[in-house]
Amino acid sequence: MELKQLEAFLAVLSAGSITAAARLLDRSQPAVSRLIQELESDIGFELLHRNGPRITPTERGIRFHAEAERLVTGIGRLHERAKAIAAEEALPIEIVAIPAFAAGFVPKALSRMPQQALPSRLHLRSAPAESGIQSVLARTADLCVVSLPAEQPGLETHVLAQAPCVAAVATSDPLARKEVVSIADLMGRSLITMANPFRLRRRVDQALEAHGIQASKVIDTNAAMIALQLTACGAGVAIIEPVTAYGVALKGVEIRPLDVNIPFLWGVFSAVSRPLPETARAFIHQFIETTASAIPGLVEHDPRRADLVTDAIFGAGAHNRAGAA
């Protein structure tokens, strides 16, 4: 198995055809076809279904794609680090963050760092919490900024914080005239919330149930930015985490505190026993300052007591279930 074979396979799936992949790679179409065939011979199974000019990945090809992409990306990052070491420059850093942070506070923190403190290469990737954690554990990312729970073995906690969820309402909504939105105000309204039942959605549902709130309609989504867009379009009132609410301004949407505390918890993690580049540590420091100054009600916890915080919010033994979340 050779790197050029993997690159040819990734190019085909990215471009959608061997002809387009050949243009991307500046190779001939027969050369790309040959590389794919050699790769299939090396690994012992077909990667592509071929039907004339139409190319689609096999089921095994789809599974193999993720592994190949991770390896090729990792080799690219290795080249970057080798160049930085040779030039005695700051090492590149890779940050994986859930969309709530990747769209707002991570870029803000980076922009407030002295430019000379940043490496010439910096990678910011948006991914679900579970993927961010696995990237750190697999050593394909230096840091992840994710929501809790996150108690997998092998993680070192650098930041552990929480803040209350908020209501997002359209500017034209009568609730926008209130300083604080009562949970009772949501009775009979169309509500917008998160889809993942193992994270924020569970606590939102518990709060609504505890106060006997019945929505006329519930719309769920996998990203708070989408919830804000739905709110701006008049689809309903959103109960969202404070990170997106205060990190990304959206015209036509007003953010109001709720009269009940629905906690949203997050942390910054790296792999245990993996020394962080100085630039990564500088980012963590700036990130703490940026979020603390912008999110009302933010509380920082002792990173060494992540298990106790998780139990207090999610219930005893929750940190043992984090891997399933």
Rank of each mutant, 00 (worst) to 15 (best):
A235C: 15
F105A: 06
V218A: 04
A306N: 06
S14N: 14
F264P: 00
D220W: 10
L137K: 03
P263V: 12
Q134K: 12
G61A: 08
L118D: 04
G16Y: 03
E46V: 07
R274I: 14
Q152G: 01
A117C: 09
Y246N: 08
A238E: 03
A318N: 07
A227S: 14
P114I: 10
Q116Y: 07
A129K: 02
A318R: 08
I288N: 06
L155D: 01
R201D: 13
A168W: 00
A31V: 07
L191A: 08
T244P: 00
E69A: 12
G132T: 08
S293T: 10
G267Q: 02
I95Q: 01
A100F: 05
S111A: 15
I18M: 11
S147T: 14
P303G: 07
P128A: 09
V260P: 01
A168V: 06
V146E: 01
I75M: 15
A21H: 02
E130W: 03
E67V: 12
A90L: 15
R139W: 06
A249G: 06
H49C: 10
T244N: 05
Q206C: 07
D307K: 12
A294H: 05
K83C: 07
V145R: 00
C233E: 14
A31H: 11
T310P: 00
V96F: 10
G234R: 04
E88F: 09
L250M: 15
A167C: 10
P114C: 09
V299Y: 01
V169G: 02
S293A: 15
I133D: 01
S131M: 10
N222S: 13
P57L: 12
V169A: 05
A227D: 02
E7M: 10
A109D: 02
C165S: 14
I183L: 12
R27C: 13
V248F: 11
E94I: 07
D311M: 05
A245S: 08
S28N: 11
L143Q: 00
L13E: 13
H158R: 11
G52H: 07
S14P: 00
Q162N: 15
P174F: 05
R81K: 13
G234H: 05
K217H: 15
V260Q: 04
E156L: 13
S111H: 08
L91G: 02
G61W: 01
D26E: 14
P296G: 10
A15G: 09
I313Y: 00
S172V: 12
P114A: 09
K251L: 10
A324C: 10
E179M: 08
G297D: 05
G76L: 05
L91Q: 14
I75T: 09
A11D: 03
P53N: 08
A167S: 09
R202C: 09
F283Y: 07
P153F: 08
N196C: 09
E241W: 03
E2P: 01
F269G: 00
S273Q: 15
Q115N: 10
